[in-house]
Every structure is written in structure tokens, then in C-alpha cells.
Write a protein that binds this DNA or RNA. Sequence first.
DNA 1: TCTTACTTTATAATCGTTATAATTAGTCTA
DNA 2: TAGACTAATTATAACGATTATAAAGTAAGA
Lengths: 148, 148
Amino acid sequence: MGCMTMSSAKINAAIDNLKSVGVRITPQRHAILEHLIQSMSHPTADEIYKALEGKFPNMSVATVYNNLRVFKEAGLVKELTYGDSSSRFDCVTTDHYHIICDSCGKIVDFHYPGLDEVESLAESVTGFDVGRHRMEIYGVCPDCKRKH
Amino acid sequence: MGCMTMSSAKINAAIDNLKSVGVRITPQRHAILEHLIQSMSHPTADEIYKALEGKFPNMSVATVYNNLRVFKEAGLVKELTYGDSSSRFDCVTTDHYHIICDSCGKIVDFHYPGLDEVESLAESVTGFDVGRHRMEIYGVCPDCKRKH
DNA sequence: TCTTACTTTATAATCGTTATAATTAGTCTA
DNA sequence: TAGACTAATTATAACGATTATAAAGTAAGA
């Protein structure tokens, strides 16, 4: 199936990326990566841990955190920190923003051309060397709107 | 001095605001509010706690957290959650964004007209009812640039 | 095979924040 | 002003996400 092939290709690309910087591919790392790519969501470390405990009954939470850090350092994964208790992790594909439901917490990807203008204005006003920015949009998702 | 007067005015306005919604003005609340307004920074709860322990040797950290919540609910204060461990608190004056130094962590206010366009596009693409957004810009501040 | 460095595991520690219960202090009414 | 009611503060414990530590396991190279 098309989706399957897509995922496999992404996983292989990610693995090649990791290998090229000298990171060993352990079964745990493979599984975490696979889950991140296939889940199409933005799971927390604990959600990943729970999702894989069937396959790896002895895996430690620390392993999940350690490897998420490894993936982050390799540029494969981004950590999303919103106000709530725990971080979420997002596979880096293309640049995009997130829109978050205030009611149910759902996170949806959302593409928007560029806010280069904002960055360059910030640069000239503050004297910073600007490198990047983050933005989240908040609102109520269609499902939650219906429920009112 | 001008600054002093400005601060006092802001504090009084904030206090009136709180009184009008039935919040008692205790010495601790007054001090926390005063510190938030006068410090011109974006302190953590612990920084506020430490800054006031001279005046209130018996004040509990819980009091700081409780009152920051009260102020947030009254719309006087915004909680800023970045990737790092603890929240920072910002007096709500006018709408503005923050630019953050990747090197030293300094947070500088930064005004930018409106990103209404982004919000409305997000609305039409995702079907959400959009309420608000947040954005932070990251870079290296002038001081840190000089030190390299 | 031996050695070395890396990984995982299990467990404990850390730290920001929140909950609890007891005490204290404001505010209102009589 | 006294008494009563409610809210706020304090001290302390609990919680939960994350990180540190040490021991055991595993892969790769000489």
C-alpha cells in the first residue's frame, strides 16, 4: 500500500541519516523512529513508551528519552513544548506550524509560506541575529465546535 | 521620578482591576504585583519568591504560584512557557512578541503589527475557530554577538 | 578473542508545580 | 467593636516529567 511504502522510505532515509553520523541502529531506536513516522501524531515520550511496551516489555523510559535526544541532535525530530506538562515530539519533514485545539488538545499541521518579514524586522529593531522562530495558533477544532 | 510614577500608576490600575473582581489585596499580592511591574523582566516563580524573601521571610512558594494564577485569571499576567524547565511571567500591557537569545536566554519585547492574515488563513485551511496565536523569535543578542 | 566504546536497563534523584490541612487574616454584619 | 464567615497564607507532602547513575549487555575493531 502506498502509505506503507512512503513510511518505509522515510524510515530508511532517517536510518541512513543516523548511520552517517555514526549512530548505531538498535531495535529500540528503530521502533521509536518507526512509531514517530507512522503514528502521524505528536506523541509524548510516555505515549511512545506505552505504545512500544508490547514489543519491548523491558524497555526503560530512559531509553525513549535518550533516543529522542539523539534524534533531536541529528535533526530528525523536533521537541514541541507547549504550556502543558510534557513535551511532544514531531518528525521533521517540511517546515510547518501547528494549530492546537483549546478544547481537546488536538494538534494539526498547518503550512504557511514564510514569515521572513517578521524575522528581518525583529533583527533590525532589536539588533539580534535572528535564526528561527516558532508560532502556534490556538482555537477550537471542527469536532469540538460541533459538540456545543 | 517619571518611572516611579509610571509604575505606581500601573500598580494602582492593576489593584483596582483586581478589587473590581473581588480579589483581596494582601501585602504579598501587592509585593508580587509590584515586583512584576517594576522588574521590567520576565521572572520565574522562583525568582519572584527569592526577590521577596527579604520582605516576606515566611512567604511560601505556593503563595507565589497561587497568586500568579489569580493574576493570570484576572488577565493581568501572562504565563510564558518555553522549552526550558520553568515558566516565566509577564505583565500584560500591550500585545507584543518576544525575541529570545539562544546564547544567554535574555528575553526582549518586540512589537509587530498583526498576523491576522495568518490566523484567517489557518481558519480557512483547518476549519478551526481561531482565537489567538503565540510566536517567539530566536537568535543571538547584541551582547552575546560581541563576546565572540 | 580481547578490548573498547556505546546502549540499555533499573533505579534513584531532581526540580517545578500542585494538593492538603491547619492557621491566620480580611471583611461583613449586627 | 465583637463575632462569624470566608478567603489567603503557610508548611509540608505529593506528584509527575525528566535526568543522572551505575550495572549489565551488546556491537565492532584490532
